[in-house]
Nucleic acid binder design. Structure first.
Lengths: 331, 331
DNA sequence: TGTTTTTGATAAAACCTTTTATCTCCTATA
DNA sequence: TATAGGAGATAAAAGGTTTTATCAAAAACA
């Protein structure tokens, strides 16, 4: 069962095999201090032959940097978190830093448990993510002694947060519709108590002018459907374009319009928000929508926490990252 | 900026404050060795007051157990991985074990990088997950020296894997339709080169009898739609129930049926597979479907890797976990 | 009273690195 | 030739914990 080379090689093994002291081996491998080029090469070669890899625990214990960071999320479903986590991890892995993922399920007890575990492991920093930008983060995060970055979540005043630029996203959606020559644009979106919904609606109103009309509701397909029913049961001019607050709402809108024999995009153009591909690629026609670039958000959050963990200073405040428009068939 | 209690307390601080030696403090805190009940209490109280938490790096270095495990996944989208990861983490956190999440993006270079990082960190074990059960895992996993569990992925012969029980899932779907009195059941599913699709189809055929018919295609809504077009363009008796290989396919099927004025579930009952709520809750009517219990799968994988990391023996082989039927309106 | 156990506590080693302070040659300078 | 300086290597300390071996004192025994 256990092979002879079962045990891991230590730097002591390397030193002995190369016929040098432990300190020389360390210096050679790290290219630090004064070492003869020849011995340096030899040590490196021997280390390679032995398959030596330094023990991150021992190194972290000494250097006070564990090269690990924790990601605390309250989202189990994964629509937002995993793309961001993948982005974070993608950046970190190139810097030799690993990522602890902690799903708190919105349970404060679990959050505390995870947070303590992260601190015990001496993580170099923490990224907190939520599923909306206007929820208070766990108060324990405030007085931590290690850097914290907020991604897709609200941080305290002197912290660094990364959000999608909801206003800009709404603007490029409306501008795209303007480019298509549409002028009677309707905005059907989710719950008004979501900050993101309000920001997008405000940006929409600025561009849409006096004819602009916002319908708040729920974040569901159902609501998109019933909103269309309402619109078409009223008299008066009908919209020639609809900007939806989510892809799910857009899907309901598209289905309801098709039921009524309205042609998309000829009669009514539709733009969604999220670029959640399971939805946006499957509507008929496929949905033109706004992508929040979650992976890029993860990249930026990862770079930020790396910087902070190296004691670099970062301008506090909310960084809003641009969204992009993904053109498919619906507009 | 830096408060006086900025630095973390060590066991040395506890020992000094309690007026005992380091070894006594350690023994008392861990309830090990011979310690007077009185001193034990005192040490614990002092540790509590000081907010002492042991350094996991130092502990891991000595005990050879890092109390961390790694999860290697090739899925960035998150539909399967995050629910499983949440299940794994839920189990682990209660045992004081943390989870490194490594998304490899199906990139062998990245997989190697992550794997090396995990080994450097002395993880106690690795869980490998894929998005289908019949892909070869990275060969590096085989000769690792630490335990590996395969979840939703194929492992080598002598390994422990956890899969959803696709056959049982298909059976309860068909049985449910039988219970509703349906006898002409059709199976519309995804690509035949997926093992899961073949297993489900075989189980379906056993129960459906000679009238059973399987249509393989793609894992898309589009395919569900066109499959229905095919069925209804042919002459002959029409099915009174359809068992679909995924929720997305089921959605296409439902939409196509509705377009044709077929009533669901009265004329045709529809059952899906996945219980991917963004789809299954949004169809009209909402979709009756099979849930693969991914979180439970994560639980089991977590328990298994915990066991292995404690050198407990586990029966090698594939453990198939039962699926459940979620009844909504479509059947 | 003298000897053996038992109890409770401790010093020190160990885990694997990195880093600081030393030490030994060798070469260049005066 | 004697000395300073530099190159290259090393011993030892440090980091925070667990564990083994040791030790002193108190309790039990003869």
């Amino acid at each position: 069962m256990s092979s002879p080379d079962d045990k891991r090689r230590t730097i002591r093994d390397v030193a002995k095999a190369a016929g040098v002291s432990i300190s020389t081996a360390s210096n050679a491998l790290n290219g630090i201090g004064r070492t003869n080029a020849e011995t340096r090469e030899k040590v490196k070669r021997v280390a390679d032959e032995l398959g030596f890899r330094p023990n991150a625990l021992a190194r972290g214990l000494l250097t006070k940097r564990s090269h690990a960071i924790g990601m605390l999320t309250n989202d189990t479903y994964g629509r937002l978190t995993l793309p961001m986590a993948a982005g974070v991890s993608e950046i970190l892995v190139d810097h030799g830093v690993s990522l602890f993922l902690c799903a708190t399920n919105n349970d404060p007890r679990l959050a505390k448990l995870h947070l303590d575990a992260l601190l015990d492991r001496q993580v170099d920093g923490i990224i907190f993510t939520a599923t909306r930008i206007d929820l208070e983060p766990p108060p324990e995060l405030l007085k931590l002694g290690i850097p914290v970055i907020y991604a897709f979540a609200q941080g305290p005043a002197d912290s660094v947060s990364f959000h999608p630029d909801d206003a800009q996203g709404a603007r490029i959606a409306v501008q795209h519709l303007h480019t298509l020559g549409r002028s009677r644009i309707l905005h059907i979106t989710g719950e008004q108590n979501y900050l993101a919904a309000r920001i997008r609606a405000d940006a929409y109103r600025e561009l849409a002018g006096p004819s602009g009309q916002v319908m708040f509701g729920e974040w569901s397909e159902e609501w998109g459907h019933s909103a269309i029913d309402t619109v078409y049961s009223q008299s008066g001019p009908k919209p020639d374009a609809i900007f939806c607050g989510s892809d799910e709402i857009a899907r309901g809108v598209i289905d309801a319009l098709r039921d009524r024999g309205v042609s998309i995009p000829d009669d009514v153009a539709v733009v969604g928000f999220d670029n959640w591909e399971v939805v946006s690629k499957q509507t008929r026609p496929p949905l033109t929508t706004i992508d929040m670039e979650l992976k890029e958000l993860g990249h930026r959050a990862g770079l930020a926490i790396l910087g902070l963990s190296r004691r670099e200073k970062l301008e506090p405040g909310i960084v809003r990252l641009p969204c992009s428009l993904v053109a498919r068939g619906s507009a």
